[in-house]
Design a protein around this nucleic acid. Structure first.
Lengths: 193, 193
DNA sequence: GTCTATATCGGGATAGAC
DNA sequence: GTCTATCCCGATATAGAC
């Protein structure tokens, strides 16, 4: 073999990084195998030494990306979560999907993807909710926070007016902040789930 | 002319209805002009008598769809809004995107569409927020509710487990209900199902 | 206005050389 | 493992008959 033993894994890791970024920016269906490979400095012919199909790549991207963001939220204190949430709801995150969270970027495509892809996605979403639940009054509140984060980013990315985007992000942040802070002070009775 | 004077407008209206439903279910990019026209009982050749390009169709779909859902929310009482929100966050709405709200179904594709399309979308989103603001304590709260509705439906559609989908929808509904009820002065316990 | 037929392009996937 | 070349199909858009 002309390549070192770790070459394939290294290449695969590099592919997941570059194709993940591209998929989050242009949409997974929005870029061909050709473009995905070019972004990693390779040609389309080499693609199928790493993945059996383009759909399998999406599954791997979702797995990798959501595991990465999972670590970002996992085991954080309330104060740390607040900082993370502020970044999540920032104009910078809205403007740079390629380095941001895969959940709002790929949700609608995952909805039409394979069962394995959807399960990997779901696992990541649940992890995010569980991490959030450490700072909310209930599981229901944690779901509410996750839905707000995802919905706000998704909506902001589709809205052309900067002023409206900022009003949206600010409004949602204000409310999420209350949900995260309120967990300790208020002793909120609204528990279910 | 072999066709009655209203034929073209009628056909256009029918096209917007059927293609809107298809786009919401399969994604706009997910169906070709061929399939879109077949759904209305026509062939692809006739498409360009109504729209100059596929992108122009998306703009028209967004305009029509969001105007329609705008009317659903507009001028409603708090009690009416609650009922509408319950339907929005129902498993039925998650399972039937073709007859549901276009905002979660098309948001990610609109984010990469033309300026005119994005503006039509934004206008619809703002209308929804404004209608919601009639029953919330503030504009920020109204944005929060809209983000939750959109995010919850989008996430639920990507999640394969029915139990988790229902937990998500239930949790978000519980919180939104509080935001809508809280505007007048809390009260009203025993409502969280 | 709608149809059939077609031009043109791009994307997913494979084959064989290195 | 990667490259170049290619097959095959689907998608946008156009041309001309009715």
């Amino acid at each position: 073999m002309r390549y070192p033993a770790t070459h394939k894994q290294d290449t695969r890791a590099r592919l997941l990084k570059t194709t993940g970024a591209l998929a989050k920016r242009q949409g997974f269906a929005g870029t061909g195998v050709d473009g995905l490979m070019a972004a990693a400095g390779l040609t389309s012919g080499a693609f199928y030494s790493h993945f059996r199909s383009k759909g399998e790549l999406l599954e791997a991207i979702v797995q990798t990306e959501l595991q990465r963001s999972g670590k970002l939220f996992s085991g954080k204190s309330r104060k740390q979560l607040l900082r993370i949430v502020e970044g999540y709801l920032s104009p910078a995150h809205v403007a740079q999907p390629e380095s941001g969270c895969a959940i709002p970027a790929l949700a609608s495509e995952v909805a039409r993807a394979s069962g394995a892809t959807r399960q990997a996605f779901e696992q990541g979403v649940v992890a995010m909710k569980d991490s959030m639940a450490a700072a909310t009054a209930s599981d229901a509140q944690a779901w509410s926070v996750v839905a707000q984060l995802v919905g706000a980013v998704e909506l902001a990315r589709a809205m052309p007016s900067q002023a409206l985007r900022e009003a949206l992000l600010k409004g949602v942040l204000e409310n999420v902040r209350r949900q995260l802070e309120g967990a300790e002070g208020v002793a909120d009775p609204g528990k279910s789930a």
